[in-house]
């Protein structure tokens, strides 16, 4: 059990995990019924997938090549921060641009909130 074997195991595991999430993402994006659910698949599982793979690659370079890549870590961190926000923004954009949720959706709280905001806005414009 030398370092290489451990490294290999580490790398393979992380990458496999990443791959699984990636494939799940694909299936999710293809199969889920509406934008909002697909956004969910894309932003969460895809992020996880890529993070794992990147971690695997990071290990590869660190443990096998001796190259401690700060920018890779930075990238992992960056993705971790931004990916969900991107999902959030897109979901909101979809909603604001009037994409209807799937019929399976149970409740839509945002509808009332937006309506309220709009009415307030109209009132303000009246003044």
């Amino acid at each position: 059990m030398n370092v290489t074997v451990i490294a290999n195991i580490l790398i393979v595991t992380t990458i496999v995990v990443g791959l699984i999430f990636t494939i799940v993402t694909m299936i999710g994006i293809l199969r889920l019924p509406d934008v909002y659910t697909r956004a969910h698949a894309a932003s969460k599982s895809a992020t996880l997938g890529v993070l794992s793979i990147l971690l695997g690659v990071f290990f590869h370079f660190w443990l096998k090549e001796g190259h401690f890549s700060i920018s890779l870590l930075l990238g992992i961190g960056f993705l971790f921060i931004t990916s969900p926000i991107g999902g959030h923004l897109m979901g909101r954009a979809a909603y604001m641009s009037g994409v209807k949720p799937s019929e399976l959706t149970v409740g839509d709280d945002l509808k009332d909130a937006v309506k309220e905001a709009k009415e307030k806005n109209m009132e303000r414009l009246k003044d």
């Binding site: 930075l74 960056f78 926000i85 806005n121």
Partner: peptide, 25 residues
Amino acid sequence: MKTNDVILQTTTKVVFFIIFLFSIH
């Protein structure tokens, strides 16, 4: 219409510096 962008704005402040530092690098 006034929009609520708190999430975006807050992250941006952080992310801006990450990007900037990265660009300098």
